[in-house]
């Protein structure tokens, strides 16, 4: 089988398994997995920038939040229907990421990390500042009545799971496709050696800019979907913690692999879920995981599997 045929087969079987799981899992795990699929979509977006392009952002929560509030505020304040609100959410994230890219891409390395962190902090604080509309930390709920698309009730667990799966599959297939095309190869080239890439005649800035926008838009779509499927919009999702999470998921699952983001999100979600049963200091797990990953396993789970056993892994 050719490389691309293998990767299509892998992604299709993954989606098929996730589809079957919808009908075999207990209610509790079905609910968890629906949430994980949305968060893994966020991680897929993060992976485009960090894993493939080699740009480490510490502020992706602002894109997630742009999607979340871009969808949530028009629904909450103006009673907009879910689908147009979803489109607005993604557009907000795309616009914000274009703006951030224009500014932040003037910097590299550590400065890029800090600038993205600072911009995200501005977005977070702005959500608190405009508390009259956003209701700040407390957030607001999107009622069940508003979360209906063409007669489908998104609050129904199975519908919600399938909607999350649709979102995840779309993001997965889009990124897998992008990474098999020339554009994707150039992103990897930028990650590996920016100057060489420039001197081979590639417009490095344009590629990095588009990578930020694609990454930010996918993250925003995840944010918008989160608001729609789980009905809650709050400032927590814009906090630093939600910028660290996708980094953690992608590092754990394997940066620069297509299914690493899902693997990382599943592991971390259950690890934190499990530990929060007996301590409120569950973020300790995240801290320890970050240190251990960066010390001992930079390629993450799927990255190690690719290195050791399955070199064709996309």
């Amino acid at each position: 089988m050719s490389l691309s045929a293998r990767s299509i087969a892998l992604h299709m079987s993954l989606i098929a398994i996730l589809f079957i799981l919808c009908f075999t899992l207990s209610d509790y795990h079905q609910g968890n997995l629906a949430r994980i699929l949305v968060l893994a979509t966020y991680a897929i977006g993060y992976n485009v920038l960090f894993g493939y392009t080699g740009l480490l952002s510490l502020g992706h929560a602002m894109f997630f939040a742009a999607g979340l509030y871009g969808l949530g505020l028009p629904m909450h304040l103006a009673g907009l229907a879910p689908l147009p609100a979803f489109v607005i959410g993604v557009l907000c994230a795309a616009l914000l990421s274009a703006l951030v890219a224009l500014l932040a891409l003037r910097t590299i390395g550590v400065a890029f990390m800090i600038v993205t962190l600072m911009f995200a902090q501005c977005v977070f604080l702005s959500i608190l500042y405009f508390g009259t509309w956003t209701r700040g930390d407390e957030g607001f709920v999107i009622p069940q009545a508003a979360r209906q698309i063409m007669g489908l009730d998104l609050t129904d667990p199975t519908t919600r799971y399938l909607a999350a799966l649709l979102l995840f599959s779309t993001a997965l297939l889009i990124t897998a496709r992008i990474m098999q095309q020339r554009f994707g190869h150039v992103l990897i080239a930028v990650r590996e050696n920016e100057e060489r890439t420039q001197m081979l005649g590639y417009d490095v800035f344009r590629h990095k800019f588009l990578a930020v926008v694609i990454s930010g838009s996918i993250s925003g779509a995840a944010g918008a979907a989160y608001g729609l499927l789980f009905g809650y919009v709050g400032a927590t999702f814009a906090s630093v913690q939600y910028s660290i999470f996708p980094l953690l998921w992608v590092l754990l699952g394997g940066a620069g692999t297509t299914i690493g983001p899902l693997v990382g999100a599943v592991f971390m979600f259950y690890l934190i879920d499990y530990s929060s049963g007996f301590t409120n200091a569950y973020m300790l797990i995240a801290g320890v995981a970050l240190v251990l990953l960066v010390l001992f396993a930079r390629s993450g789970i799927m990255g190690e599997i690719r290195k050791r056993w399955v070199p064709w892994l996309p």
């Binding site: 390395g109 973020m283 300790l284 801290g287 970050l290 240190v291 960066v294 010390l295 930079r298």
Partner: peptide
């Protein structure tokens, strides 16, 4: 530089949660 930032984020959470 980049790895130490990620590591110190980890240390941040370890100290704070401890």
């Amino acid at each position: 530089p980049e790895a130490t930032i990620v590591a110190t984020i980890g240390i941040l959470y370890i100290m704070q949660q401890t």
